[in-house]
Nucleic acid binder design. Sequence first.
DNA 1: GTCTTGGGAATGAATGTTCATTCCGTGAAA
DNA 2: TTTCACGGAATGAACATTCATTCCCAAGAC
Lengths: 213, 213
Amino acid sequence: MASEAHPKARPSQTRLSSPAIGTKRAAGGDKREAILDAALELFVERGFFGTAVPEIADRAGVGAGTIYRYFESKEALVNAIYRQQKLHFANVVLDGFPRAANTRELFRQLWMRMAKFATENTNAFIFLELHHHQRYLDDESRAVENRMLDLFTGVVTQAQARGELKLGPPRLLMGLVMGAFVGVTRSCVEIDQALDSADWKLAEQCIWEAVRS
Amino acid sequence: MASEAHPKARPSQTRLSSPAIGTKRAAGGDKREAILDAALELFVERGFFGTAVPEIADRAGVGAGTIYRYFESKEALVNAIYRQQKLHFANVVLDGFPRAANTRELFRQLWMRMAKFATENTNAFIFLELHHHQRYLDDESRAVENRMLDLFTGVVTQAQARGELKLGPPRLLMGLVMGAFVGVTRSCVEIDQALDSADWKLAEQCIWEAVRS
DNA sequence: GTCTTGGGAATGAATGTTCATTCCGTGAAA
DNA sequence: TTTCACGGAATGAACATTCATTCCCAAGAC
């Protein structure tokens, strides 16, 4: 019931990156990728329940039945996307994160790495935001989420102990920062125009001043 | 197609407030209210497409057909809720708003009024957040949204001109503030515990420091 | 007072549609 | 020839909406 790889499928590997630069008919016939991409787009446009499986098939350029060769169910599909993108996000943010740096630099890195992900994968970011905490996410997907949350909570608590962040419930500060980030991202999605580097830096400076002690 | 009041219905009035303190069987038999309340709850819990009309009827304690005496369709129902709550929100935030006050006070008022609404109508606030910009909202509903947006844009631009807010795209600053507010609200919904007044004040101070020049 | 009756409110089973999922014929590869 | 990925029509379940019927009650008749 919580299987990531469908028994019938024979995926080359569970890859986490790959914007698929291949030719029209990619090597090995990457239907799986096409389905994941199409479903991501549609779930962002119409939501999970608002999207019909045959629509996904159409956009992916495959038959409706083919989806079930790769995913056990619509629910398994949305969970696969969620985990894939959440892990991708975690990679972009955490890989080689300079833990030893001072809090100011830590914060800048965090913000700019999130900005990098949100700029290069806007749809994926909105997808994660939209499906956060939904009923149809399984335990595995929630676990991925919680791991990141715990990590950040630790960082915030330590920085507070050192007097570098404002005191207050860590959840509140984190909610504030993440919320602001989402708000900024959406404000540019709504006018369909990517933020430039200067805007991201401005926003970063703003939110740093919000949380610094 | 964009009718607010359904022809067959005979609503006493289009009321915007009224938490219904009446007896069990309210005066006039307020089925309409019961339907609106039940639908609001369910749309927050499961989303628009995730909620079946008969479920709404069950929770409202009416027959499925009754819903169609008051609303033309499921879509008309969600639009009615959206407008009702958006206008309620606008009332709470804007009624007697001290426009002449200085920017710091203006901001404090804005934040605390939003906090008041979000505390007293948490479900409604989440509903508005969730259904913001959805496909099934009609032009009228969008107009309500845009009116508020324009108003705030004006306030921000003026405050920037007076050198009291950081310079930058008004949309970005507003997205940041609203996003942070939503983030703070959610952070407490997720642990199912209302924020106390001190927490709201802390958050307010944080975000003021984020946007002040 | 009791009884009757007209009409609108309310109901929930019935209807037609849409959807997730399955099934089977086809064609390419080995 | 066998195998197997594939497509898309077929299937059955769930859905939004409708409608024939019931229920309620106010107002008249007695």
